[in-house]
């Protein structure tokens, strides 16, 4: 059966999906995954989960973030406030801007 593999690079990082392995059970899946997916890339921890156990919902089925105007929850909306006074606020704004571009506008 197929097991999905999730890798965490550093302690505290999220586990992110990095591939899969074929294995007859969970114990063998962990043995195989540590070589196939933890061998060359920096790795702190791996998760394995049976592929069939993973559910998915995607953008075809739902509208992530809703469809009505939610600009009030984005920093960029408050453009008469200069965020540069505090590094962390400026950074947050920059991150939000980047994500806004990915979403295709605010």
């Amino acid at each position: 059966m197929i097991w999905e593999v999730f890798r965490q690079e550093e302690p505290g990082d999220r586990h992110t999906h990095c591939g899969n392995v074929h294995a007859p059970d969970r114990e063998m899946a962990t043995l195989f995954a540590q070589v196939q997916h933890g061998r060359r890339m920096q790795t702190n921890s791996l998760w394995v989960a049976p592929k069939d156990e993973i559910g998915e919902v995607d953008a075809d089925e739902t509208e992530f973030g809703g469809t009505t105007d939610k600009s009030y929850r984005w920093a960029i909306t408050y453009n008469n406030i200069d965020a540069s006074f505090a590094e962390e606020v400026a950074e947050s704004e920059a991150d939000q801007e980047e994500h806004a571009e990915k979403r295709g506008g605010t």
Binding site: M1, P24, D25, R26, P50, D52
Partner: peptide, 12 residues
């Protein structure tokens, strides 16, 4: 082995 491992392969 896999076939004998129950429905999900987690408890052989």
């Amino acid at each position: 082995w896999e076939a004998s491992a129950g429905d999900d392969g987690r408890t052989p």
